[in-house]
Nucleic acid binder design. Structure first.
Lengths: 233, 233
DNA sequence: CGCCGAGAGTGAGCCGCCTCACAGTTCGGA
DNA sequence: TCCGAACTGTGAGGCGGCTCACTCTCGGCG
């Protein structure tokens, strides 16, 4: 869009249609509509730590993750923060502000270098009215999000440090081949929403009990069932 | 549906179409579709305290509130509970389970005697595919819910007793002509998610300061701006 | 090679909220 | 009219998590 030499990296050649097709939202869409959306969609790259959007911004677009990971958080005036969601390859995010036209509900930052597809509101909304199956898929996705967020409310209400940490560890390592995750205890404490020191003490206990294994910036779950047990009490 | 004389009260004569039209979801719907939905919709009445559905139930229908108030909560195995949502006349609820076909995420109980319209999944889903404008309205409603629930997560994370109580009082009394609400301190403590005793102590302080007025099962906000101030810190 | 910064581990004290216990008050119904 | 149940008010003690302050380890880089 800009003619200036900006910080925006050169957009690589990306088969946008193929990307879109990866997502359930567009999988069954007919070829013409898909081509049309793809034509409008912009490829945007972000470096690790880069801000994608901020809480309160007007939300004009929907993002699909082509490559990398995105974290959505919210911060208080005193500097505390909660993790609201994490999105990986194939996920879409940013749809709330897009749908109701109100400001973004959280901050989105790139957790790793990543590549996104951005769909503008004005290009996306017409599709919804023409293709109800897309709208219905989107309804299912939103329902899932609402379930997830409701679960988060329950966790915060019902679980203490042990339970919340156990749940977080399971979520972080699920999908990973070796049940292991790479992050500092500081980052972990942000995910759990409790202090680094307390997190550390509990990890020590579990490490001594052989439930997990600890290394610098790396954590491996050895006995997931034990954690699952703790998390569901 | 049943031929037996059950506990279900006699359904009164209700103009279902008029009820449906009250809701933004159906306001702009054409007459034929609206008649059709109304024909399928069942009127159901519930007494105060009655259970409408339980967490984990398969969710086959969507409800619209014709009269009364409904509270949706979730409970832990230890008996603690959180209030997830309250629905008043004109609201719809129960749409998540309906849309994604998975179990209900909370318990719904009648806060007052109330009258609901129930729309079955099999009758409602076809409408969505035929009338994309309905699907889009529903997307907006879900977005709003997600915003509200996200806000709840932020509150639980960032606010202490004072802040959360202040927010709850404002929510409870907003819309009321006299900024006053009728409920026991026990019920209030459930809304806030903190102990009755602590709630009481804070109310005493505010009462002495003239911020609120207290009476048996009645609470009046005298200086809403003071509370708003406290809530946003 | 040695330094420096990021990360990990740990004690001590504090603070907010919870629970238990109990007394006082109000109100509806037998 | 009196009893019991629901509701309100309040003290005391305990616990979980936070903060502060510090040490120790590791790894990268000049």
């Amino acid at each position: 869009m800009s003619l200036l030499a900006g910080p925006e990296p050169r957009a690589p050649a990306v088969n946008k249609v193929a990307i879109l097709r990866q997502h359930e939202l567009f999988r069954e869409l007919d070829k013409d509509s898909c081509d049309q959306i793809a034509a409008y969609a912009k490829v945007r790259e972000f470096r690790r730590e880069a801000m994608i959007f901020s809480k309160g911004d007007p939300g004009f677009c929907l993002f699909a993750v082509v490559r990398g990971k995105v974290l959505v958080t919210s911060s208080s005036s005193e500097g505390k923060s909660v993790v609201l969601n994490q999105f990986d390859k194939g996920d879409i995010f940013g749809e709330i502000a897009l749908l109701d036209g109100r400001p973004r509900t959280g901050d989105a930052t790139a957790l790793t270098d990543c590549c996104l597809l951005a769909l503008e509101r004005r290009d996306f909304l017409p599709i919804l009215t023409k293709k109800p199956e897309i709208a219905i898929k989107l309804l299912e996705i939103l329902s899932g999000r609402l379930r997830r967020t409701t679960e988060q409310v329950e966790e915060m209400m019902f679980l203490n440090l042990r339970g919340r940490l156990a749940k977080t560890l399971l979520r972080l390592t699920e999908g990973a081949d070796s049940l292991s995750a790479e992050l500092s205890q500081n980052e972990l404490s942000q995910r759990v929403g409790m202090s680094r020191e307390m997190i550390n003490r509990q990890l020590q206990v579990w490490s001594r009990e052989g439930v997990i294994a600890l290394a610098r910036r790396r954590l491996t779950v050895l006995r997931p069932d034990t954690l699952a047990d703790i998390a569901s009490r």
